[in-house]
Write a protein that binds this DNA or RNA. Structure first.
Lengths: 194, 194
DNA sequence: TTGCCGTTTAACAAAAATGTTAAACATTAT
DNA sequence: ATAATGTTTAACATTTTTGTTAAACGGCAA
């Protein structure tokens, strides 16, 4: 059998991801995506059968990619301090590429009433314990470990979500913004870890 | 002439705001809003002529409300420290009511390519100077004042945007979440101001 | 009452977005 | 070459969402 695979299916998915996650075009229609990918809209139906299936697939892969990132950092064998450092690095690099991905996943959660699988909750619980242990050791400021985690993710994700607004507010271009975000990695670490 | 004013126009706007800003239902259609408001969909056209006009009006009012909040805190006559304290209070109270409002404004900015008026940029610049002065005085940790501002807003806004996810992750209910957010005010202040 | 006028409704119309089909196209194996 | 098969396209159909119209309703003033 001839498996031709012109890469169109992947192109469509990548284009959808770029529009949703990089450009924040949350209202993109199938036509918008087809145009951006430079293909006929019918191909979206040919490859994915329906808009909903395409969108669901994109969302599922996004969740999986994020999970993989976080798991990588959460369950590495490093010391807590290095683990946090790695988490910041990995997460922010990804968030710089796909600033709206997390927001997409979050609002998707809102819309579809999906639940977080128990397995992931366990990983979080495990990490919360590690945070707590580090606090007991006096390495980081004592607080509710959940607050610590929220702080960490807030500091990483938020400035990238508000990318556009910030560039406008501070009258800076992409390059300057990029530098600001790169500097942020260190700054967040110092702020969190003190 | 008889001005009857049954309050329907306001009801529709308030319902739209609630769905967008409180419930995060960004994909709500006119029918969704009419249903939620318990009115006939035609009334949306009667009062606002078109969906776009209604949405634009809602977005404009949202921007104005946020501006008002921030101006109130930014240009008060308080000392810097108290100003920050007030900002946290005002902003977080609002963000607890309308967790998705800021995100709506931001993505709207993304979609419509609106620019931030010079007047607002000036207010920010002014505040950045104050931040800088406070750093010079050694009251707060030295860093790029823009990073300071991003930190502040990140810590305030993000956990409320990810409301749903957090409640699920930490297996907590609305009341507990509310308490967590209340505690956060103090925590953010300490973290920022140290 | 009766007519006015703002409000509300239902039925219809138009537009936008999505989905389906059949045929054209292109590559590979035979 | 040509049959087979995966890919792409255009035309059409359906569904969803939005917009319009005319008529009904209801309070109030003349």
């Amino acid at each position: 059998m001839a498996q031709r695979d012109t890469g169109t299916e992947q192109l469509i998915k990548d284009t959808a991801k770029r529009m949703f996650f990089s450009e924040g075009k949350l209202h993109a229609t199938t036509q918008d995506i087809a145009d951006a990918a430079g293909v006929n809209r019918t191909l979206l139906n040919y490859y994915f059968r329906s808009r909903d299936i395409l969108f669901e697939q994109v969302a599922t892969e996004a969740r999986a990619e994020m999970s993989a990132e976080l798991d990588f950092a959460f369950s590495s064998e490093l010391e807590f301090k290095e683990k946090v450092e790695q988490l910041i690095n990995v997460f922010m690099d990804q968030a710089m590429k796909f600033p709206y991905r997390e927001m997409y996943v979050v609002t998707e959660l809102n819309r579809t009433e999906k639940v977080v699988p128990e397995e992931k909750k366990n990983k979080i619980r495990q990490f919360l314990k590690e945070i707590n242990a580090e606090m007991e050791k006096g390495k980081i400021k004592k607080m509710d470990p959940r607050q610590f985690l929220m702080n960490l993710f807030a500091l990483m994700a938020y400035p990238l979500i508000t990318n556009c607004l910030n560039k406008s507010l501070y009258s800076i271009n992409d390059a300057e913004y990029h530098k600001l975000m790169k500097d942020r990695k260190k700054l967040i670490f110092e702020m969190i870890y003190q």
